[in-house]
């Protein structure tokens, strides 16, 4: 173990080893200047790879620029791209599909995640094993999950179809989870729920474990029923954790891309074409850079605005 005296010795040696010219220069810097010196590389990186692209995207969104035709140049076209995006029925369709996906995945995952956490919090025999097992899906790559669920959903050989067919007493190949217009939106909800419910569960479990036992003991003394304890202690104390998890996951699902591309590529037709898939097609397949920049900015403002409102609500819940 390094003792303070050892540290002093090391500092002394470092001080002696520092050339006078360097020591004089550093010695003249204020604490604030040294602090800036330390964070400057990070700030520079942030500006270069985050803020500048954002500003550049805003600029491009007012032009007719196409990245694959850069030699042709581009013109300032004002708010034309924004008008086109907002009047495009296909864009509104993708936003509806995205909303369906986000709302249903979040609703189901909150219920299942909280339920699982509540069960695992009971400290039964082997609960660690089950916790680890339940966490496995979220450790997999979305591309892998998308691929193997494609096989599970296969009408002729898929295990999912077989199980449903077995219990429902219908022919397993009589329905197509990924090929049916009505079932495909639910197929992607199921896969996302399978993969990410463990995340909600983990956060809820942390919330549940943070509730001190004495609160329940006091409630017992007050003869509060289990139901009352659940609604008056468990839910309010886990809620900030749960809301935070929902915030993270909702933002992630709003920009969901890889999993759904692997499963359906946005099909059949366009029934599972999420906003992010459409955006990618516009930006990097059709190369409508100006138009897709406008769409990206609209999405960014939407998510940023909604997240801000949500964080305010979260802070209010925490203060209660």
């Amino acid at each position: 173990m390094t003792t303070p005296s050892t540290l002093d010795k090391v500092a002394d040696r470092a001080a002696r080893a520092t050339p006078d010219s360097v020591a004089r220069r550093i010695g003249g810097l204020s604490d604030k200047a040294v602090a800036w010196l330390f964070i400057a590389p990070t700030i520079t990186l942030l500006l270069a790879i985050n803020i500048f692209p954002l500003i550049w995207t805003v600029y491009l969104s007012f032009t007719n620029y196409k990245a694959n035709r850069s030699a042709r140049g581009f013109q300032w076209i004002g708010t034309r791209n924004y008008e086109r995006v907002l009047n495009d029925s296909d864009i509104w369709h993708t936003l509806q599909v995205t909303a369906h996906f986000v709302v249903w995945t979040m609703s189901i995952q909150v219920i299942l995640g909280f339920g699982l956490a509540w069960l695992l919090n009971r400290q039964f025999k082997g609960h660690s094993f089950w916790t680890t097992l339940i966490l496995l899906p979220m450790m997999l790559s979305p591309a892998v999950v998308g691929n193997f669920w494609t096989f599970l959903y296969q009408p002729q050989i898929g295990l999912f179809n077989y199980v449903i067919g077995f219990f429902a007493g219908i022919d397993a190949s009589s329905f197509e989870m990924l090929g049916s217009v009505t079932l495909a939106p639910w197929a992607i909800v199921i896969v996302d729920t399978w993969m990410w419910t463990p995340y909600l569960m983990l956060i809820c479990l942390a919330g549940l474990r943070s509730i001190p036992d004495y609160i329940y003991e006091a409630a017992e003394v007050d003869r509060a029923s289990a139901w009352r304890q659940f609604w008056s202690i468990t839910v309010p104390m886990v809620l900030p954790f749960l809301m935070l998890a929902v915030l993270f996951r909702a933002i992630e699902n709003f920009k969901m891309f890889d999993l759904v591309v692997e499963l359906t590529s946005g099909g059949p037709g366009s029934v599972t074409e999420l906003a992010s898939i459409n955006l990618k097609r516009e930006a990097f397949e059709k190369w409508r850079t100006g138009y897709s920049s406008a769409f990206a900015i609209i999405l960014f403002v939407t998510v940023f605005g909604a997240a801000n409102i949500y964080v305010k609500a979260l802070n209010r819940v925490k203060q209660r």
Binding site: Q154, P155, Q156, S173, E176, L178, G179, T264, S265, G267
Partner: peptide
């Protein structure tokens, strides 16, 4: 019609 009548199940992609 050909797609609906005569392809294997799940032949959507």
């Amino acid at each position: 019609d050909l797609y609906e009548c005569c392809t294997p199940p799940g032949y959507t992609d």
